[in-house]
């Protein structure tokens, strides 16, 4: 699942506006495949961890109720040049990590 994320972090007055877009089906389960009638198994991101310069600042817990290709927006204390790292883990144990410099 390489390159599943797009990160944009822009700092103003010491606070960075962080926007993350992740490519993921976010299948909540409970739906049926319209062709086969079989249940579609759940497949969604559970945890997204935001780190600034190696320190965890936010953990977002998601469910299958979050839209497909989730968009997350949060604000953290960070200045231009700081390193922002975002990692996600889904219910199947798949994971991805990406880093971006705060602009």
């Amino acid at each position: 699942m390489a390159n599943s994320m797009k990160i944009r972090a822009k700092s103003k007055d010491g606070v960075a506006d962080v926007k993350v877009l992740i490519t993921h089906p976010m299948e909540g389960g409970g739906r049926k495949d319209p062709k086969t009638g079989n249940d579609i198994e759940p497949h969604f991101i559970q945890d997204v961890v935001f780190e600034v310069n190696g320190k965890a600042v936010i953990t977002a817990s998601l469910s299958g109720g979050v839209s497909k290709n989730p968009y997350l927006n949060c604000k953290v204390a960070a200045n231009a040049g700081d390193t922002l790292k975002v990692s996600w883990t889904d219910n199947k144990g798949e994971t991805d990590t990406a880093e971006a410099a705060v602009g």
Binding site: A60, L62, S67, P70, Y71, C74, K75, V76, A77, A78
Partner: peptide
């Protein structure tokens, strides 16, 4: 370090 703000879809 996190601000009291959250947004998603």
């Amino acid at each position: 370090g996190a601000q009291s703000f959250a947004s998603t879809r």
